[in-house]
């Protein structure tokens, strides 16, 4: 049974696109045919994060409105087998998304893919609403920071009341918390909200905690999903999140101070 997963947050700049790219790539690496769709009409960026910006010919909006076939708009990833990207339009606006059009495309994708990842725009306007409407599961990307947690709570409310599953009285959308930019040092110093604090407020299960990691910026510079960066803490944490999405029960990593070696200790002392 194919699954539609929305990656959303309410607030902008928390790591939705990075997360959508990482989860989609991680799922495909585990052998699941996966497509990731950019819902941020007019401000497309998923293509850039996935490193396929030069290969965009047709887009999601062309498929909905201009009679272009889906397979002409899908971009096949050259690094991971079974991974496809459906970019959005850079020139149109969110009114080009119709509920019927989005539904038609998602239904067609369900024939071919196991996972359909919807990368939501920030805000709670039409683009964000369209991205979450057809979702079976939601990954709510949150930073340990007051405005992000508040916006996440708001988006959870919208998922619970305005998604297709909510409107039709079906089993509710499964919600997951993904805490990003987690900085253990600042948590320890009492400068940053703890994982437990965020969980207590939002009251949804944790899919993963992604540590603050310079590899995330380096990877976005290069157009590489961070899960493809070997040994990067953020990449590893995303791989764990993918495993949990697939039902595996893994302990959380990167939520405690990393064990420091002797060299580290000496360097810190001399610094």
């Amino acid at each position: 049974m194919p699954k539609v997963i929305v990656v959303t947050s309410g607030k902008g700049g928390v790591g939705k696109t990075t997360t959508a790219a990482a989860l989609a790539t991680g799922l495909a690496m585990r052998g699941h045919r996966t497509v990731v769709i950019d819902f941020d009409v007019g401000l497309r960026n998923l293509d850039l994060i996935m490193g396929v910006e030069r290969r965009v010919v047709f887009d999601f909006i062309n498929v909905i409105n201009d009679g272009i076939r889906l397979h002409q708009a899908l971009i096949k990833d050259k690094r991971v087998e079974g991974l496809y990207i459906l970019p959005t339009s850079q020139t149109r606006d969110k009114d080009a998304l119709t509920r019927e059009g989005v539904e038609r495309v998602i239904e067609e994708l369900k024939q071919e893919f196991e996972y359909i990842i919807c990368d939501s725009p920030a805000g709670i306007e039409k683009g964000a609403y369209m991205a979450l409407y057809f979702a079976d599961e939601a990954v709510v990307v949150t930073n340990p920071e007051v405005s992000s947690v508040r916006d996440s709570d708001r988006i959870l409310g919208i998922i619970n009341s305005r998604s297709k599953r909510a409107e039709e009285g079906l089993e509710p959308v499964r919600q997951h918390l993904l805490l990003t930019r987690y900085d253990w040092d600042r948590v320890q110093r009492g400068d940053m909200l703890k994982l437990e604090d965020v969980v207590e407020i939002l009251a949804i299960p944790v899919l993963g905690v992604i540590p603050n990691d310079p590899a995330v910026l380096q990877c976005s510079n290069l157009g590489i999903p961070v899960v493809l960066e070997p040994k990067s803490p953020a990449g590893e944490a995303y791989k764990d999140a993918v495993a949990r999405l697939l039902g595996q029960d893994l302990p959380l990593r990167f939520v405690q101070p990393p064990r420091r070696g002797l060299v580290d200790w000496l360097l810190r002392r001399s610094a």
């Binding site: 850039l48 910006e53 850079q90 910026l217 380096q218 990877c219 976005s220 510079n221 290069l222 157009g223």
Partner: peptide
């Protein structure tokens, strides 16, 4: 450096946009 790659990618894109 990855920043240099980022700049080159952006220059191409922004010029086209």
């Amino acid at each position: 450096s990855s920043a240099e790659t980022a700049k080159q990618r952006l220059q191409v894109l922004v010029a086209l946009d």
